[in-house]
Design a protein around this nucleic acid. Structure first.
Lengths: 209, 209, 209, 209
DNA sequence: CATGAATGAGGATTCATTCAT
DNA sequence: GATGAATGAATCCTCATTCAT
């Protein structure tokens, strides 16, 4: 006789609904501006459930961030970025960097605000995740290798990485403002062409003649 | 009997103290998280004075942003970015972009948070200021010119600009996290070398062989 | 197939565990301060069980008090306080008064708090229990008798009773504070000697020379 | 030109009103049962003022207790309890003990509940206050002296003190219940006669024949 | 009986803003 | 202009109680 127990899926439902609503709420208003009432309403759950499952607004906030870190981790193996064609390799990196927010655009404002407050927890989490993704090591290795083999000019590797990351992330993070300022009206197309444009510029920038 | 009247300098003092404290407070906590009590304490003035001079927390916030926009404007004419040497010209742009926050590092978190919330007021302000600086037009003009004269490859001008801005701004905006993630310990030196590295990479990236 | 049914003993176990935990919880925090969650945790039972068995926090509270009244009643006949030796008789009273809390020290704070709130239910319950014990009548009778027979001075009987009760109960009820204030470090010994000291003082106090 | 500043009296007014209302509220409901809303209403002040002046419900509670301690201290010198007539001396002690709550009957339930919860702060406060009053030392000294001079029997001094305190305090603290249980209907008269009755019983109890 | 989740009515506390002086 | 106190509308969080299984 099987006692019908709330399935894992149903359980996740309430918690999941809260997490989704939380990400939206925090994205729109920030931790301080988020209202638990509104958040609960958004999630369609009783306010007290938030405290039952997460303890406090802050802990819920961290849960949202953790959840995102975990999702990033799952992207980790999207490609191992190896291969003969250097262009393909860097396109791989670019895709990796872009995929961090794809499908989770809601998280971008949360990300920016965390940057703004420079929270320990977030900084460390980012460092850990990026380390796990191996981005740092792989990028460095490939560029250093290229320099040694004479394919790349003798640029400062760290500066090159900083530029590569900046080229890739900045538009993603600031698209709304960027579009307004630079009057980009065909955002979709612009986004589609972006990876190739970035890799093209970057590789030509460091390639030895 | 002389009624002691506060001098104009002293007057500005209170307002100035409030603005400075406000920038810090908003930087650390954001608009929603900022506390008028704490802000007043920081500024060393009575809380009611804030309302006397600025009317409300939000208006004070806008005053802080406006003040920053005005400072940027004053940098506008730092150089007209003309000259024969293309490298010098782009170094000029880079300096311009960097100077936006130099000496106003406290404002960066405010900036990031505004990016996050995508506030109309801020977006429009940014657009206006950048337009006034002529950054857009000048950059576009120079790149297009270069392409026409055959100095530059036939890259997508807008993508190139997006990359150039990203290279320049990203590190500035996210230095604390970036340093942690990429283990940059000599930030000062790294920052000093950054403009040259950026311009070098960018120009090599778009230059025709 | 035998359906396993909880035995009466096990049944009592849950109810008993709840009552014990309740006494502790109410003792430490009072009715208003008691938390049903914590109480359930203390008892090691599911919170809903408390409502299943007792209906509400208040009813559980009354159950705790009732249980204590019942225990007092069972002590009632510990002695019938008769006999020739007046000292033995009063020692009997003293023992009776002391036994009210012996082995139920946890109940003392509940008792004090009830005193504080002067609840009808409790006051009446106390009156009934004490009446059943016959304390009032017997004490009064013995003292009045003693006065008539010339063994006792012509003291005000009610005042004498109030003093006798006070001497007996006050230390019991306030031992922790009393010990701290009067620096009593050998509480055990002090308690052991207390009954004799009380009876000795009291009888000498009312005895005719 | 005198700037009219809120007088000390007026200042005390709000704080004083809160303290008075708090004593009542805490007396009736205890710390946990007290409601800040109701308390504020009782005091006729805005709820936020409680937090402005006291910080939290708990701190207000401590303020109430402290205030009472301070009042007790001010009674300290009501008499120096010296003189030839031993009866007068002990009447002095009795008055001292009674005066602790006279005019502050509202505080008694607070006192009882503190006894119940055995809070460090309270216990220590009581010890300190009583020490300052010199009750302990004086009582002990007088009884020991009396024993040495042969006026008193060789009773255990500490037990005698415990009895004396019990006789004096118990009725005060538990009057409502005591009256109900022992059917005391003329409380006023009973109270008036109490000090003499107590001293009479006590002195006869320890006096050498 | 037992359990984990759910609910709704509070309850403590905060905070932008205003007022009297 | 400057100050400390006052105000009222939130806002976070708790808790007794109930429900579905």
């Amino acid at each position: 006789m099987t006692r019908p127990i709330k399935s894992a899926r149903e359980k996740r439902d309430t918690i999941g609904k809260i997490l989704d609503a939380a990400c939206e709420e925090f994205a729109e208003y920030g931790l301080a501006g988020a209202r638990v009432d509104r958040l609960a309403h958004r999630a369609g759950v009783n306010k007290a459930m938030i405290y039952y499952h997460f303890g406090s607004k802050e802990k819920l906030y961290q849960a949202v961030i953790n959840e995102h870190f975990n999702r990033i981790r799952q992207i980790a193996d999207i490609g191992d970025f190896t291969g003969d064609d250097i262009e393909t390799v860097f396109l791989g990196f670019t895709e990796g960097l872009h995929s961090v927010f794809v499908g989770r655009e809601k998280f971008i404002p949360v990300f920016l605000r965390e940057m703004a407050s420079g929270g320990e927890y977030f900084t460390q989490g980012m460092a850990r995740v990026i380390d796990e993704l191996g981005l740092t090591r792989r990028l460095k290795k490939i560029i250093d290798e290229g320099k040694r083999q004479g394919h790349f000019r003798d640029v400062d590797t760290r500066q090159a990485i900083a530029s590569f990351i900046g080229m890739n992330m900045m538009y993603q993070l600031t698209a709304p403002v960027f579009n307004a300022v630079w009057e980009i009206k065909d955002e979709k197309i612009f986004r589609k062409h972006r990876p190739r444009a970035v890799v093209d510029l970057f590789l030509n920038g460091i390639r030895a003649e």
